[in-house]
Design a protein around this nucleic acid. Structure first.
Lengths: 337, 337
DNA sequence: TATATTTGGTTAAACGTTTAACCAGCTTAA
DNA sequence: TTAAGCTGGTTAAACGTTTAACCAAATATA
């Protein structure tokens, strides 16, 4: 790359100090500089194609106007949808965003956070993986502005914006009950993350409320990594045996897609013999042939709120805000054909 | 945020110059510094929790180890899939990536590029929108390292990695012909972008090769923004009239999804009366009830190659590399049920 | 007339690194 | 004995900004 034009170059050309150029170009001390000279400086900057060096400015001002985003996987539609919202909201405030994917791996997320901090990001938006609590605590100690999104740790007093997972699961299960289901199973990840625990809690509470069986055996957990075979086995177990389920709640979109794929190979009729509710909206089920319902997360609101909260925090508002948004139950009927 | 530990702080604590600390921490001049002192410095750095300030380093070295990525929309699975590959490849070389979405808007992409350059990114990976050729030319003049991805401008000698769009479309159409289609239509965007033109060219060539009608009226173009109604109208026109089509090529995944949605409302039978080939793999068609085919882009290779080419270019290899990857024709049969 | 104040700028330090150039004290070779 | 070379460091400038502090000349105030 060719050498770039600096303030000094402009100053030289116009015959003033670099300080003055800086003042003019940043519209500071406007009353203290003569309009004609200011114009000459601006003109010079324009026809020399001056562009500020943000790195230098950042070093001096200790601000990068950059926010770091750590999601589990940017290729996942949930993450990338969120990223897009955050990007737009950030852009409106002259912020850019560096993203990275933690793959639900605490070690990796720790490394990513460090890298982002080394780059002096002004703040972080994080979807923390399981067992990353200590990282969050460290951020608190270091007084780094951040907000958690989608997930959070219940006994940490941090900013976050997430779903009301208990309520959403509860609502999903009640939908099944209303539709006539009496033995309702749940498929979730074997994971410590609070938001998943809350979904289980909501599921259980809804069953109890309606005096339906809430046995442990109705809840199947699968490893977050080795999906397919496990999922099939779990669903198979729920569907066979003396008292097969007639309703099923998926705790995450990936589970739902894999689950639907398997269920499709079975003779079981959806929704007559098995009615399904899933978490998260997912494109993949766009053309599913049978009706089902899902909990739609307010992605837009989540992203916007998270970004605004972060910008607030960067701007020194030391308050902590915790928001649980309501999920919407959407009943999807197949695209007609 | 609390004040951070700097090289100077370490130097003071150990009682040496900051230069020496820098040398040690960067493993430079290893033979010129005594092992014990080096260890003391490292220890001090460790228990003071020293973390380098990349901004300061970047200012001095004129390198940010950051690459800028401009896609059309990070929320689009194609873009986010690509972004993920690029992220991983970049990370392996200690690069991070700043992303932004141009929304197929040349003005916006210009602004984004400027912002990225202000931040002194070491290079750019771009999926340029239509009418952004001049921006690319400027980058060339400024000798900014960059590589185009997915799209490119045929009369610009730039690095790029994209699909062999002509070949892919050709292959898709031949698939239809082999399956017995005789009147094959195409739905594409009204857009100058070369890669779309190439798809049309491939479509036309395949028809001509097999002596099938290649009339203008078989190609429908819709605006890239106001999709739904336009798409329905276009498909309706192709399907009705004196000689309705029996085969259809979609030039992009969004078109395919909207198209399938509409076709589903029609009495026409897929694939018996209408056989379909689409560009791009898309989750949304996962559970489509009828067989169809699509051109699968080698996303992984595309992202990896683009990143490597960019890193090469950043490392001063002035050669320009142009790669057209082959698309794979995938025939998808419905998930059984 | 003497003193304050305003006007329109300049000077210089600082942000936290990197790195070329330097240097004092030894060791070695001739 | 002396010059050259090595060892293990230090000094200082520089990267491109920002911004507090300063200053001379012109103008206003008493």
């Amino acid at each position: 790359m060719e050498r770039k034009v600096s303030l000094k170059d402009i100053a030289q050309k116009v015959g003033v100090s670099t300080a003055l150029v800086s003042y003019v170009l940043n519209n500071k001390r406007e009353n203290r500089v003569s309009p004609e000279l200011a114009q000459r400086i601006r003109d010079a900057a324009a026809d020399m194609n001056y562009r500020i060096n943000q790195v230098a400015r950042s070093l001096k001002t200790n601000k990068t106007n950059t926010i770091g985003l750590v999601v589990s996987d940017i290729a996942n539609p949930f993450s990338s949808g969120l990223a897009r919202i955050i990007e737009d909201e950030a852009e409106q405030h002259q912020y850019t965003v560096i993203f990275s994917s933690s793959d639900e791996n605490a070690r990796k997320s720790g490394k990513l956070i460090d890298t982002l901090l080394d780059r002096q990001v002004d703040g972080l938006i994080l979807a923390p993986p399981a067992f990353s609590e200590h990282q969050i605590i460290r951020l608190q100690q270091q007084q780094v502005p951040f907000v958690l999104v989608d997930r959070y740790f219940p006994d940490l007093k941090t900013n976050y914006v997430a779903l009301d997972n208990f309520g959403a699961a509860h609502k999903g299960v009640e939908h099944l009950i209303t539709a006539g289901c009496r033995r309702i199973g749940m498929l979730t990840y074997a994971n410590e993350l609070f938001h998943l625990q809350e979904r289980v809690r909501g599921y259980t509470a809804a069953l109890k409320k309606h005096k339906l069986p809430a046995k442990k055996s109705l809840i199947k957990e699968v490893d977050i990594r080795l999906q397919k075979a496990d999922i099939e086995k779990a669903i198979h177990q729920l569907l066979t045996g003396p008292e097969p389920i007639d309703g099923l709640l998926f705790a995450a979109n990936n589970l739902a897609v894999a689950g639907f794929r398997y269920i499709n190979t079975l003779p079981v009729k959806v929704p007559e013999a098995l009615r399904i509710v899933s978490f998260d909206e997912t494109e993949a089920l766009e053309f599913y042939h049978a009706p089902f319902a899902y909990i739609k997360q307010p992605l837009g609101e989540m992203g916007r709120l998270a970004t605004r909260m972060l910008l607030e925090a960067i701007g020194q508002r030391p308050a902590t805000t915790q928001i649980n948004l309501e999920g919407e139950l959407v009943v999807k009927t197949p695209n007609l054909r």
